[in-house]
Computed example of a mutant assay.
Amino acid sequence: MIRIGQVIGVKPEEIEEYTRLHAEVWPGVLDKIAECGIRNYTIFLREPENLLFAYMEYHGDDWAADQAKMAADPETQRWWDINKPKQAPLDTREEGEWWAGMREVFHVD
């Protein structure tokens, strides 16, 4: 299992709608997340900075292949098309990232 943390901004005027959408995530999107080995997926909002922090655990053996499978899913693509314009990626993210990856520095069970 791999723990993953990511961060991205959210446009202030979109917080209410972004929150509403995520309270009613489409079943097909949830199914694809599970199919791609992602468990314990949580998104937190930090205000007033308007930052979203995502935490997830990956329980698969090929992260790149599972991410490609998710990205190829038409329902997931529609979900992203609705939500991506509400987000504000960090200028400091790595090339090719949308959500900026984070390095784990501490964990305890």
Results as ranks from 00 to 15, higher is better:
1 M>A: 10
1 M>F: 05
1 M>C: 11
2 I>T: 07
2 I>G: 12
3 R>Y: 07
3 R>I: 08
5 G>S: 01
5 G>L: 00
6 Q>R: 05
7 V>T: 11
7 V>E: 12
8 I>P: 08
8 I>L: 06
9 G>H: 04
10 V>G: 07
10 V>T: 07
12 P>C: 12
13 E>R: 12
14 E>P: 06
14 E>S: 10
15 I>E: 11
15 I>F: 05
18 Y>R: 02
20 R>M: 15
21 L>Y: 06
23 A>K: 08
23 A>F: 08
24 E>P: 07
24 E>F: 14
26 W>Y: 02
31 D>T: 02
32 K>C: 04
32 K>R: 01
33 I>S: 09
33 I>H: 03
33 I>Q: 02
33 I>L: 13
34 A>G: 03
34 A>D: 01
35 E>M: 01
35 E>Q: 04
36 C>P: 03
36 C>F: 05
36 C>M: 05
37 G>Q: 00
38 I>N: 09
38 I>D: 04
38 I>Q: 06
39 R>P: 01
41 Y>E: 03
42 T>I: 12
42 T>C: 13
42 T>V: 09
42 T>L: 15
43 I>T: 00
43 I>C: 03
44 F>G: 01
44 F>W: 02
45 L>W: 01
46 R>I: 08
46 R>M: 09
47 E>H: 10
48 P>R: 04
48 P>V: 06
48 P>S: 06
49 E>D: 08
50 N>A: 05
51 L>R: 07
52 L>H: 07
52 L>F: 10
53 F>K: 03
54 A>N: 00
55 Y>A: 01
55 Y>N: 00
55 Y>R: 04
56 M>P: 04
57 E>L: 02
59 H>N: 08
61 D>S: 09
61 D>F: 10
61 D>W: 08
61 D>L: 11
62 D>T: 02
64 A>Q: 11
65 A>L: 12
65 A>P: 07
66 D>L: 14
66 D>E: 10
66 D>H: 12
68 A>T: 00
69 K>F: 05
71 A>S: 04
72 A>P: 06
72 A>T: 05
74 P>G: 07
75 E>Q: 10
75 E>A: 03
76 T>Q: 09
78 R>C: 05
78 R>L: 06
79 W>M: 07
79 W>I: 11
80 W>F: 12
80 W>P: 02
81 D>S: 10
81 D>T: 09
82 I>W: 10
83 N>Y: 09
83 N>W: 14
83 N>E: 11
84 K>M: 15
85 P>L: 14
86 K>L: 15
86 K>C: 13
87 Q>K: 12
87 Q>V: 11
88 A>D: 15
88 A>Y: 15
88 A>V: 13
88 A>I: 11
88 A>Q: 14
89 P>Y: 06
90 L>M: 07
91 D>H: 10
92 T>F: 13
92 T>G: 03
94 E>M: 01
96 G>Y: 15
96 G>D: 13
97 E>I: 08
98 W>P: 14
98 W>G: 15
98 W>H: 15
98 W>S: 15
99 W>G: 14
103 R>S: 14
103 R>K: 13
103 R>L: 15
103 R>G: 13
104 E>Q: 15
105 V>E: 03
107 H>Q: 09
108 V>T: 14
108 V>Y: 13
108 V>W: 08
